[in-house]
Design a protein around this nucleic acid. Structure first.
Lengths: 136, 136
DNA sequence: TATTAAGTCCACCAACTTGGTGGGCTGTTG
DNA sequence: CAACAGCCCACCAAGTTGGTGGACTTAATA
C-alpha cells in the first residue's frame, strides 16, 4: 500500500502540475488546498526537491514549482522515491535489489511470479506521468 | 513489499504442499528445513489454521497439514491473509476497501491507475496456486 | 493412568516505521 | 533591515514487525 506520505506527494505534485509555468506556489497554499499537514508537506516537498523533481525559491514571491514539465515526470519514479520498492520482493526489485537469503532465485516459485507481477505493474506506472493524474 | 512473515508463510506452505497426503508435519521440521524461527512459525501456522488453510493434529504423530489440495489454494488469498491488501490504495482494494478522505473516486487520477495496477496484479496472483510454487 | 509429544495460547519485547510537530536558521526581496 | 518563505534539525506518539518465553491442553501409547 502507498503510505499517506506518498498520497500527499501525489496530491501536491498534481496541484503543482496544474500550476506549471505559473511561478512558485507556497507550501502553505498547497497544504490548505489539498488538506495536507503543513510541516509534513514541507518535508515531502524538500525531499522531492533534493530528488530533482521540484525546485524552489526563497523569500517573498517564493515557493515550489516543478522542475520539468508534468509529462516528463513518471509516476514510477515518484513511487520509488517516496514509497520505496514497487516489487513485492527485494530479490525481484530493479532499483532496490537485495539477494534473498535461503532462496536461490533460479528455483524459487515465488520469484518468477513476482517478476511477472512487477512487470505488469511497471508496465502501467512507467508509462504514466503527472500529466495523466488529474484532479487528485 | 511482502513481509518476512508472508515469505515464511509461503515457504512453509510450499513445504506442506510437497508433503500433501503424507500425514501431519511437525512445526519443528518445517522450521528446521526452511530456516524459519520456530516460535514465529508457530504463530503463522496457527493463523493459517484459523483461516481454514491448514489443519493440525495434537500429540504424538501430530503436526500440520494442508486442509485442501495445493491446487485449490490461491496465492492471492494467502497474500491477503498474511500480508494484507494487494491494492496500492484502500479506495481501490476489493477486500480491504476504505473510502479516501479528500479524494472522491470519480475524479481522482491515481484511483483509475491504481485500479489498473490492482487488476494486473490480481490477474496473476488469483490464477496461481500453491501447486505453481515449487522449491521455495 | 502416567508420560510424553505436540500444538495452543498469552504475554511480552526491541527495533523500526509512520505520521507528525516545534523552533530556529538561512537566503531573498523590497 | 524587515518580512517572507523555504531549510534544517530534533523530537515525539502510536503502530507494526519480527521474535521469544512459558504455561496449558489434547492425544497417543506404554
Amino acid at each position: 500500500m502507498l503510505s499517506k506520505k506518498s498520497q500527499y506527494a501525489f496530491k501536491a505534485l498534481t496541484y503543482l502540475s496544474d500550476k506549471y509555468n505559473e511561478g512558485p506556489v507556497l507550501i502553505s497554499e498547497i497544504a490548505r488546498k489539498k488538506k495536507i499537514p503543513l510541516k509534513f508537506l514541507e518535508n515531502i516537498l524538500l525531499e522531492l526537491k533534493k530528488a530533482d523533481i521540484l525546485d524552489s525559491k526563497k523569500g517573498k514571491g517564493g515557493g515550489y514549482f516543478l522542475k520539468k514539465s508534468p509529462d516528463k515526470i513518471k509516476v514510477a519514479s515518484i513511487i520509488r522515491l517516496v514509497n520505496g520498492p514497487i516489487a513485492m520482493l527485494p530479490c525481484v526489485s530493479l532499483y532496490f535489489y537485495e539477494r534473498c537469503k535461503n532462496c536461490n532465485e533460479t528455483n524459487c516459485g515465488l520469484h518468477d511470479m513476482m517478476v511477472e507481477v512487477r512487470d505488469a505493474t511497471l508496465n502501467i506506472v512507467e508509462n504514466r506521468t503527472l500529466k495523466d493524474l488529474k484532479d487528485l
